[in-house]
Design a protein around this nucleic acid. Sequence first.
DNA 1: CGGATTTGACCTGCGC
DNA 2: GCGCAGGTCAAATCCG
Length: 181
Amino acid sequence: MENYQMFFPCSSTGQFSKNPILTEMTSSHVFNNFHGDTSNGFSGLIDTENLVSKSEAKDPLTQSGSVVKPENEVKPAKEKRDNKKIKKPRFAFQTRSQVDILDDGYRWRKYGQKAVKNNKFPRSYYRCTHQGCNVKKQVQRLTKDEGVVVTTYEGVHTHPIEKQSENFEHILSQMRIYAPF
DNA sequence: CGGATTTGACCTGCGC
DNA sequence: GCGCAGGTCAAATCCG
């Protein structure tokens, strides 16, 4: 539980408190609009640990509403190569977007793409290019709704945001967060 | 020419 | 133990 935080994991380290965008996110756009409203762009925030525990209960594709489908987060057991079994903060959210790549102000390098079962769209894997920053993210479009992009972040940025993005601010303005607990 | 992307191979965990 | 699916690597390729 301690490894999973709401949205950007800024609370545990305080590293992002100096970041205007993230500060705004946590103080206004995000947590004051704590609903699962899918009507306006941002569709949901998912604690992926809860998501895993729920995923065994029902077929992912039968779910409706703003809850992210569990195929987005199948098993939390892939952090082997760098660190044994230390779970990193990980969270996912949905956005309604025509583009897969949400410009969140960080620089990402794509390192993989995989076809995912039960989904006609591939999942893309990105790593933060900042030296020493090991944050990863996955981006996937839903088969059920092509307009919905699911982004899963993993890890905590060890550096300030590199550039502020109008696009990202626009995304933030449309955010709605879904709490699964 | 250097950095980013693509893409097939490889590795690992899990369910049967 | 085997097969499948997800995740990562790394060589080739692309692009500014």
